[in-house]
């Protein structure tokens, strides 16, 4: 076992443990902090894969912006340790956990090669070809990311962007209640 392996196990434990503690911890702020730890250690895992760009985006977007908003909301609403103890929510969260455990099990089965869908059968990972025909070298350089995103994955990118736009418009419509007497 060399240094990189050691680091991998360290950060992997940290990310999984952080995730677990996030679910378990009573206090929302603690939960948010554990989630940040988990996210940052995932970023560290990306660094170990020498994918600096992804690592930095992980920190920038999730730890730096999304989680700040989470904390912001938690603090503004001043959710105490008893927040979220509503029975209706419980059913929903049960459903969600069932779903995610299911996905986890399926993925584990896939990667461990049980069943005929083992990792080597995944065409997508083996070769990535751009629309222009020449195959994209699977590398972590910034240029490759950009090139891949705007050639082969153009449609998914646009669709994702459109989805985000729709979400944004939805939020604005929901949160901006029009008061008729003010409008008049």
């Amino acid at each position: 076992m060399n240094t990189v392996d050691l680091l991998f196990y360290f950060f992997a434990t940290l990310s999984v443990g952080g995730g677990l503690l996030m679910v378990i911890s009573r206090h929302p702020v603690s939960a948010a902090m554990f989630m940040i730890i988990s996210l940052v250690s995932v970023a560290a895992l990306f660094v170990l894969l020498e994918s600096f760009f992804l690592a930095i985006l992980q920190v920038l977007v999730y730890a730096g912006a999304v989680m700040v908003l989470f904390l912001f909301i938690i603090m503004l609403l001043d959710v105490g340790p008893e927040g979220g103890k509503v029975s209706r929510v419980k059913m929903l969260s049960g459903l969600a956990s069932c779903l995610s455990v299911g996905i986890l099990v399926i993925l584990l089965l896939q990667f461990s090669g049980i069943g005929d869908a083992s990792l080597s059968n995944w065409k997508a990972i083996q070769s990535t070809e751009s629309v222009t025909g020449d195959s994209l070298v699977f590398s972590t350089s910034l240029k490759n990311f950009g090139y891949g995103l705007f050639t082969k994955y153009m449609l998914p990118l646009q669709v994702a962007g459109f989805l985000l736009l729709a979400a944004m418009v939805g939020v604005i419509v929901l949160s901006k209640k029009s008061t008729p007497d003010l409008d008049a």
């Binding site: 920190v59 920038l60 350089s141």
Partner: peptide, 13 residues
């Protein structure tokens, strides 16, 4: 290679 992004990311923490 992504120095400036690194700075933005870390300082946002």
């Amino acid at each position: 290679e992504v120095g400036i992004l690194f700075i933005l990311a870390v300082s946002s923490l």
